[in-house]
Design a protein around this nucleic acid. Structure first.
Lengths: 212, 212
DNA sequence: TAGATTGTTAATCGATTAACAATC
DNA sequence: TAGATTGTTAATCGATTAACAATC
């Protein structure tokens, strides 16, 4: 089954639908309407229906979508069959918080290790995740078949570390540093710049204030 | 000077241009071409020129843009004249990391306080930022004229806390919880869902692997 | 039946990019 | 001049939404 490549935004929303559906299912609900899902995410019902259409799932006119079936379908699409291993690179406050945040949350995406250059941190265990020395990166990534890295090193180290990650065979990077990274085409890169996000909020708050 | 509302994406990029320009300026460079800025951010030169056009700035054919002038112009657009106060709500690991991350970084956006319900945390100081009890939120937000909140409470508390923030008069929220929030129209909301981000990376890494 | 819902196409909206005149 | 660059319009691309037939 080779689904055509789903739009970026749809993939993000599928992950969010799943998150909500799991809560909903634990609540004992068996069916859900597109407008219910939409309401929770503040998007339109049409968008929900269209996303669900894109993954080839259908509901019923009477009761909407079967929660369990939809959950299964979404998981089939966005989950990895065997599971995928993730490492956190840079165990500062942010790296530590991220390890803690994900620890034990998702079953198919597991943080299996962390890396740091600080000898103080190396060989310690953070929320069940062992910290290795950065110079063993290549070795461990290859041996453990790790696919994804979350990058939380200081800005000055970001470029050099990215190069090492790519050389080691990492396939995807989630970048939390403020440095825009350079990666070859076969590596999927997702950047999150917290400063831009906050400045964007500030900009629109300011606009709002002026218009009033 | 009422600039027409800039596109969301342009505002984000302006913040990124500024970040790069500051580094570039410290490097002693006085001028920069659109393709140089573009290269650093992996976008097209046209996009850079268009964004710069939208804020009404111009460069020269010979030397591109004057770094200092452009910096000033961008700051004029996205910065707040008087400065804007920010609080972090929820001083867990993530909240603490964010306080630390921003501390001393931006001059116009300052984290002036944090809130938590845990008596252990209240009245302590994190990276220079005092932590107040959550029930003083309204009082302090009003007294200090705080505009923006970064929300890092546990998922279960997200909704209730958001309501309190809105009631207290917060104008913008940067939401780091996995709960999609409900806010009135006059409050600007920016959500960041780390789990969706990571699952998106996993999805495209998986796709890549299959196609090969 | 009347009302509510899904599934899907076509239209719209917003953002990016191609094309190119102007000019140093 | 030839080459490189900016500024800007028009075209394109991608994502969202409006519209509506089908149907329980």
């Amino acid at each position: 089954m080779t689904t055509t490549r789903l739009p970026d935004k749809t993939v993000e929303r599928l992950s969010q639908y799943r998150h909500l559906l799991m809560a909903y299912s634990n609540f004992g609900k068996q069916h859900i309407f597109s407008h219910e899902l939409a309401g929770m995410l503040h998007i339109t019902p049409v968008q929900v229906r269209r996303d669900i259409m894109l993954i080839g799932h259908t509901g019923t006119l009477r009761r909407g979508y079967d929660v369990r079936d939809l959950l299964k379908r979404i998981s089939k699409i966005i989950d990895v069959d065997i599971g995928m291993k993730v490492v956190v690179v840079g165990v500062g406050l942010m790296g530590g918080a991220i390890i803690n945040y994900f620890s034990g949350k998702r079953s198919k995406l597991t943080i299996v290790g962390a890396f740091d250059i600080d000898p103080e941190k190396v060989n310690r265990v953070y929320a069940g995740v062992p910290c290795y020395p950065a110079d063993k990166l290549r070795e461990i990534v290859r041996a453990e078949d790790i696919d994804i890295a979350i990058l939380t090193v200081p800005p000055a180290d970001a470029e050099a570390m990215t190069e090492k990650l790519v050389m080691a065979g990492i396939k995807g990077i989630l970048n939390f540093t403020t440095i825009p990274l350079n990666v070859p085409e076969h590596v999927y890169l997702e950047e999150y710049n917290m400063i831009s996000s906050l400045e964007k909020v500030a900009y629109f708050v300011k606009k709002q204030k002026i218009n009033k």
